[in-house]
């Protein structure tokens, strides 16, 4: 799906139809290849899912979670939004975490950001972004929390930008740890463990930010302990 799009309306319609057809063509090709390789593949999937992982990543088209981790369909539950945010008042992400932890009982939760993130870049730009303002505000707040460290970074903005991407992942991972679902499941069963990673386009590799899950859990508990129910 690349190449110059045409400009006259009739051509545009034809072009859109083609790129549309291509999705179905590609899908049919994939399905028949998969079936040829493993005849029972789809029947097994139809019986249910039991993924070990929950992935919370950016909507960015360049990072399809299952592809960059080499996983098969059925192995990773996936939530993707702008700049991989985990906001405490966002029912969308909270219902994903809740379902993944309480119903699917995932063992690992990975918050994955990426260098060159458009959402983080927009948040670093002092500009009115309309309806995106409230969402980007969460990233600006990460900047505020780590203002001293970020402002101390010498040289051009690129290093600051990379570091904000990392700090954003760490804060969002903390937000996952602050949820009742994660705290209660970990106390009861010893999982899930929360990880913070960053994907780099230079080499296509995932960088582990080495979040100390147990240490973070202890640290946040003073204020955010939700293990006790009513």
């Amino acid at each position: 799906m690349s190449g110059e799009p045409p400009s006259n309306p009739k051509e545009v319609r034809k072009y859109l139809q083609q790129s549309h057809d291509r999705i179905f063509e590609s899908n049919r090709k994939w399905a028949s290849e998969q079936k040829a390789k493993h005849p029972e593949f789809f029947e097994k999937l139809a019986q249910g899912q039991s993924p070990d992982y929950l992935w919370i990543g950016c909507s960015d088209s360049r990072i399809p979670a299952e592809a960059v981790t080499g996983l098969e369909p059925g192995e990773m539950f996936i939530h993707r939004n702008i700049a991989n945010l985990v906001c405490n008042t966002d029912l969308n992400v909270m219902s994903v975490v809740n379902y993944a932890v309480r119903h699917l009982q995932v063992k690992h939760i990975i918050v994955c950001g990426h260098y060159g993130c458009g959402g983080v870049k927009a948040a670093m730009t002092p500009k009115d972004m309309g309806i995106l303002n409230p969402w980007l505000r969460n990233i600006r707040d990460v900047y505020r929390l780590h203002e001293a460290e970020l402002d101390d970074i010498p040289g051009d903005n690129d290093k600051k930008y990379d570091r904000l991407v990392e700090l954003n992942v760490i804060e969002q991972a903390r937000n996952v740890i602050k949820t009742a679902a994660v705290q209660q499941s970990y106390e009861e069963k010893g999982f899930p463990v929360v990880h913070g990673w960053v994907f780099g386009f230079n080499d296509g590799l995932l960088k582990d930010l080495n979040i100390n899950f147990e240490g973070e859990l202890e640290k946040i508990k003073k204020i955010f302990d939700l293990t006790k129910t009513e």
């Binding site: 799906m1 999705i23 590609s26 899908n27 090709k29 994939w30 399905a31 999937l45 899912q49 993924p51 399809p64 979670a65 299952e66 592809a67 369909p73 059925g74 192995e75 990773m76 539950f77 996936i78 939530h79 994903v96 379902y99 993944a100």
Partner: peptide, 14 residues
């Protein structure tokens, strides 16, 4: 859907 069995880029062969 977040369902693990529907990874969009893989199923669309993109």
């Amino acid at each position: 859907c977040a369902d693990s069995r529907v990874p969009e880029t893989t199923v669309c062969n993109c």
